[in-house]
Amino acid sequence: MSSAFFPEQSSDELALDQIGPALSRLRRRTPASSKDLSRNLVLNVIADAPGETTVGGLAAEMGVAQPVASRTVAACIADGLLRRAASQSDGRRTVLELTEHGEAERHRFAAEQRKAFEEITAAWSPEEQLQFARLLTRYGADATAWSRKQVAGSD
């Protein structure tokens, strides 16, 4: 469909325009429940964070309001996935840490996601699966670094 408002795009440009919707669909696929999705996100953010994580830092990394992060953290603590601890650098601050159960749940989520990936990509060659896995992992690491720069730049 070509017009003054929608000029012709190359197939490469169209593919690049589909990244956002594709990433959105990936996020919706697994884990099975929205509760698991939130918990998986919280556990991974805390595990991957360089240094200590507060509820405010978690909220910023997740892109949600602090009360939303606080409720999710409270549920994770109630379920034994997280614990609050005093900061080692500033005893007045409270930081979040994974418990052994939290680490086990994180591994369970990862195993479920790998299984889903293998089922979804069953028709792909092993080389395609591995290439996609490497590139998606790289994208995730680069997105995290980009996000942290954005937050640091807004301070």
Rank of each mutant, 00 (worst) to 15 (best):
S3D: 09
F6Y: 07
F6H: 13
Q9E: 12
Q9K: 06
S10P: 01
S11C: 06
D12V: 15
L14M: 09
A15N: 05
L16Q: 10
L16D: 08
D17I: 15
D17A: 10
P21Y: 09
P21N: 11
R25V: 14
R25G: 12
R25M: 15
R25A: 15
R28S: 11
T30D: 01
P31F: 04
S33K: 07
S34C: 08
K35H: 12
D36E: 15
S38P: 02
R39I: 12
N40F: 05
N40T: 01
L41M: 09
V45A: 08
I46S: 04
A47W: 00
D48A: 14
D48G: 14
A49E: 06
T53E: 01
T53Q: 01
V55G: 03
G56S: 14
G56V: 08
G56N: 14
A59W: 01
G63A: 06
V64F: 07
Q66A: 11
Q66H: 06
Q66P: 03
Q66T: 10
Q66Y: 06
V68K: 00
S70C: 05
V73S: 00
V73Y: 00
C76P: 00
D79T: 09
G80V: 14
R83H: 08
S89M: 02
S89L: 04
D90N: 09
D90Q: 05
R92G: 00
T94F: 01
T94E: 01
V95P: 00
L96A: 00
G102E: 02
E103V: 08
A104G: 07
E105V: 04
R106A: 07
R106C: 07
H107R: 13
R108W: 12
R108E: 07
E112S: 02
E112T: 07
Q113M: 08
A116Y: 01
E118G: 09
E119S: 08
E119A: 07
I120V: 14
A123D: 14
E128W: 13
L135Y: 09
L136Q: 09
Y139L: 15
D142Q: 15
D142M: 14
D142W: 10
A145K: 11
A145L: 10
R148H: 10
A152S: 07
G153V: 08
D155M: 12
